[in-house]
């Protein structure tokens, strides 16, 4: 019975991922430059070695992506958690709050990218205009997307804007399923709000938090649309993400072997990070039980 339940999902995933996986693995050890010819040439591990040792652009892009994944997602978590805890206090009115906060998620990156391109513009955009008006010109904000120091930040801010509400809803759904009796019992035992949060709520929220973090990390690792729309990876290479660089290799240069090797390295990195997270969660669970 258990097997029957899981069968449809496994069949779906297997049938659609096994060929891409094998094909990518096969490509990663050949040189296939579709812009000049459809012929493959076996090169062994050369692609991997080149990515890891000879491609400074790859590492720059990985670094930028790491900033988005670590800092950006952390902000999303903290902000989402805060908003969820606050919204939960709002009683019946919280549904309206949640609905309003969820609107950014509904906006496809291809749309929000265009909005933020104007919003962040120094000459034509509302953001700097409002800042300068409010501070009477005392604060001279930077030309956000055109400044190598802030270009990556604009992508992060846009990502946070869009996905902190995702964290909020996930955590709120988690909070809603915590038994009120449990909290009451803790209160009777004399726990204050602070202890209630750290000792009771947070451990119970751990599974939603972990899945939320994992999903957000995986998706932020793929940040692509926003890069294209906001900066094209520039100025210079200051906001080039690994997904954008992989896209260039795959869909502009059509260097299929090199792209495959790069994809595998990314896959391994994400797997390692996810493993670490899950083992933390497991230890946490073990400690609780």
């Amino acid at each position: 019975m258990a097997l029957l339940f899981v069968l449809p999902a496994v069949l779906l995933l297997l049938s659609l991922t096994i060929y891409p996986l094998i094909r990518t693995l096969a490509l990663s050890v050949v040189q296939l430059e579709l812009s000049v010819s459809p012929n493959e040439k076996f090169v062994g591990l050369t692609n991997f070695i080149k990515v890891l040792t000879g491609d400074s652009r790859f590492w720059n892009a990985m670094g930028n992506t790491a900033v988005l994944v670590v800092v950006g997602v952390a902000i999303q978590l903290v902000l989402g958690m805060t908003l969820a805890l606050m919204a939960q206090q709002m009683g019946r009115g919280r549904t309206i709050w949640v609905t309003l906060f969820l609107i950014p998620i509904m906006i496809a990156p291809v749309v929000s990218g265009f909005q933020f391109r104007v919003i962040f513009n120094d000459t034509f955009g509302p953001l700097n205009y409002i800042i300068e008006k409010l501070t009477n010109g005392v604060i001279q904000p930077p030309a956000w997307t055109a400044n190598p120091d802030t270009s990556l930040l604009t992508i992060m801010m846009t990502d946070v804007w869009q996905w902190a509400p995702f964290m909020m809803l996930l955590i709120l759904a988690g909070l809603e399923s915590i038994s009120p009796e449990l909290l009451e019992a803790a209160k009777v035992d004399g726990a204050n709000a602070w202890q209630l949060f750290w000792r009771i709520k947070l451990p119970l929220l751990m599974s939603v938090i972990i899945i939320g973090l994992l999903i957000r990390m995986m998706d932020t690792f793929k940040t692509f649309d926003l890069v294209v729309l906001l900066t094209n990876g520039g100025p210079g290479d200051s906001s080039e993400t690994i997904a954008y660089y992989t896209y260039l290799n795959g869909f502009q240069f059509f260097s299929m072997g090199y792209t495959a090797a790069m994809a595998f390295i990314q896959l391994i990195v994400i797997i390692i990070i996810s493993r670490v997270f899950l083992s933390i969660q497991k230890r946490q669970r073990g400690a609780d039980e």
Partner: peptide
């Protein structure tokens, strides 16, 4: 974990095989 890992694969690499 295998199930989860199918979401991790960079879409650029799987797009052409698909």
């Amino acid at each position: 974990f295998w199930i989860l890992s199918t979401r991790m694969f960079p879409p650029v690499a799987s797009a052409i095989p698909l």
